[in-house]
Design a protein around this nucleic acid. Structure first.
Lengths: 226, 226
DNA sequence: CCTCTTATGTACCAAGCGGTGAGTTGCGGA
DNA sequence: TCCGCAACTCACCGCTTGGTACATAAGAGG
């Protein structure tokens, strides 16, 4: 029991020979843990995710998770914070001010549609957090009460549309956002049960394009009704 | 160690004296396990639910869960099957054939709305099952591929509306069902994160009534557009 | 070059987990 | 009345789980 490392150890004393990796880098380690944890939590839920399994997919060890984050729950909160932060950053890049109101609504709805489809892990994390009644979200000072930029963009479009007389003046921006979100979240989050029960594959390109148009039609019809 | 039951035992030999309970009843035991398990799985998710905890809330023991269902996963599938079965039974009772098409659509949407709000545990189970990519649903011969009756009702209404010339003739019934479902599921399933981020309480009566009307307006506007 | 802090790895633990072996009791039928 | 079996109880098991004690190496600063 004297041989500690039986193999796979250069031992040539030339420590600097190794390519590039394995230097000490707190930021890199933290980022790697977050990335792996995001995938794992999104994949299996909070209770279903295993700290040991996250650790095994890391190039570092489990000890680092506790060193940097403190515990499973805090790691999960950190994952949520990073995910929401990234989504907000993306939303802020939306630019539809150069379009006329109807086209702008269609574009915004379409972008949300694409965006949700492109980030299913985020939608999954949101579903998971709702299963837990948003208690972690509510407990995070970085996240609670901080609304999405998308609603402001939407409110501006509605304002312009009203001024131009093409939109009704009794429609609330948050309502419209909710309708768009509902449609986009549903087809991503509930895709699996919907497929089993109704045999509709949301990811099929034809279905996808059809639904993207449908969402635009739906919202515009509502905003321009009467 | 001879006294097995130190107290709380009548022991008057009048076995028939006891009110009604505690006889052997397989059906009742099964039903009780299912009821407790439904609440527990809906509350904490599949991985988060604990067999031990379900057992503690039972008037019987954990062993009975394994006796009747075989294991945690099979118990979960049984919970899903019962939940879907009940929902379908409710859907089949919908009767809107006596209403004109527009009123019928509003009524159907409203019933779905009320129905989803009244059964949040079911919505939670569906969310949970989607987190698991509907693998249990797909594996259950009693559930897979068996569409909801609501879509047939919807298709009939659309048909009538088209015949009367009040509805467009290029709208798919399943699309409409999806829009209604999306709205109703979203406001129930994502209620918690939505509240934390946008400070909107879906359960507030005024909000609720407003959204119920909104859903009807939305669908009707789309069906009657152009 | 030494030293002190930060970052990392190893080995391990107690509690809780899903699951079971083995016996016991009530009840319906002969 | 008694028997056979379904319905039920109790104690127990082995493994996985989140979490940690402790040793140690890599750099930055002097």
């Amino acid at each position: 029991m004297t041989a500690r490392r039986p193999e796979s150890q250069p031992r040539t004393d030339a420590a600097a020979v190794r390519p590039v990796e394995r230097t000490r880098d707190a930021d890199r380690t933290r980022a790697e843990i977050l990335a792996v944890a995001t995938a794992e939590f999104a994949d299996r839920g909070y209770a279903g995710a295993r700290v040991n399994e996250i650790a095994e997919k890391l190039s570092t060890t489990k000890r680092m998770i506790y060193y940097y984050f403190g515990g499973k729950e805090q790691l999960y909160v950190a994952v949520l914070e990073q995910a929401y932060g990234r989504i907000r950053a993306l939303e802020q890049q939306v630019d539809v001010e150069h379009l006329e109101p109807v086209a702008a609504i269609r574009e915004l709805a379409g972008l949300t549609f694409d965006h949700h489809e492109a980030h299913p892990e985020f939608i999954r994390l949101v579903s998971i957090e709702n299963i837990h009644r948003a208690e972690h979200l509510a407990g995070s000072p970085a996240l609670a009460g901080l609304a999405a930029p998308a609603v402001d963009v939407l409110a501006a479009i509605l304002q312009r549309g009203r001024a131009e007389g093409v939109f009704r003046d009794d429609v609330d921006a948050l309502d419209v956002h909710q309708v768009i979100s509902a449609f986009c979240v549903f087809r991503t989050a509930n895709r699996h049960t919907f497929r089993v029960i109704f045999d509709r594959d949301m990811l099929d390109p034809a279905t996808r394009d059809h639904q993207r148009r449908l969402l635009g039609d739906l919202v515009v019809a509502h905003l321009t009704a009467r």
